[in-house]
């Protein structure tokens, strides 16, 4: 097959992104563990990952640029390079957010907490991690059917977001935990919501990769078709 080297380079790039994804997954796993067990030690392991992820992301980006310059990719190759860059970006950002959360856990070690809020936070962290993991899996397997379902899972994160924010804004009499912790909790809620969104986007990029369509357009067409079927 012609362009064998180019194909190998593309494959190499994708597997590099997947390796990167695995590491971010591990970081998120650690983060969830730290939240579940109030384990500042686990969280501490993640301090400093941010800079490593950023460097890794820049390496992948540079590789993409070199391939664009040398190979002048079009069509599916171009979509792949575009997708790789965009997924990389989501990974870097998720990694950064994960580190922020771990920082918060370390900084608030020993602070008094509100039990309900903590439960909601942990639940949200688990769900966000699941969405992220699934997004990566959808990307790896180019599973465009599941990309659509991801959105629904993300809705659960949004629900937990509202619930947590509500608890933060309206602490129970004498409860609510230390103010410092509550403040950090608000930020964590926000970061978790972002991580879940990145997961959805990583999964959605599979749709673009395979069909050339934006997930939003694909969803709209899907909805329109159902409306037509209902009408007919």
């Amino acid at each position: 097959m012609p362009r064998e080297t180019f194909q190998q380079e593309l494959d190499g790039l994708v597997s590099d992104v997947l390796d990167f994804g695995e590491e971010v997954k591990d970081s998120l796993e650690n983060m969830v563990r730290a939240m579940e067990g109030r384990d500042a030690g686990a969280a501490r392991q993640e301090l400093g990952v941010d800079i490593r992820y950023k460097t890794w992301g820049m390496d992948i980006e540079r590789e993409c640029m070199i391939l664009q310059a040398r190979q002048a990719p079009v069509a599916r190759d171009l979509r792949l390079l575009y997708t790789v860059q965009s997924v990389t970006n989501h990974l870097v950002r998720s990694g950064t957010l994960c580190e922020h959360i771990c920082h918060a856990i370390v900084d608030t070690e020993g602070c008094e907490r509100d039990e309900d809020l903590e439960t909601a936070l942990v639940e949200m962290a688990r769900t966000a991690r699941n969405v992220f993991n699934e997004g990566l899996d959808v990307f790896e397997n180019r599973d465009i059917e599941r990309a659509r379902d991801l959105q629904a899972k993300d809705d659960k994160v949004d629900l937990l977001y509202s619930e947590s924010m509500n608890l933060i804004a309206n602490p129970t009499e004498g409860g609510g935990g230390a103010p410092e912790w509550r403040m950090r909790a608000a930020l964590m809620v926000h970061y978790l919501e972002r991580i879940s969104d990145h997961g959805v986007d990583v999964g959605g990029s599979a749709v673009f990769l395979v069909t050339g369509q934006r997930i939003e357009d694909a969803m709209q067409q899907y909805l329109d078709r159902n409306v037509d079927q209902d009408a007919g």
Binding site: P2, R3, V74, A75, L78, R79, G212
Partner: peptide, 19 residues
């Protein structure tokens, strides 16, 4: 044609994956 052609043969050709 160069971002998302309809047919596989076209895509194979423009990306240089011919034959």
């Amino acid at each position: 044609m160069f971002s998302n052609p309809e047919r596989k043969e076209t895509e194979d050709y423009v990306t240089g994956r011919f034959g």
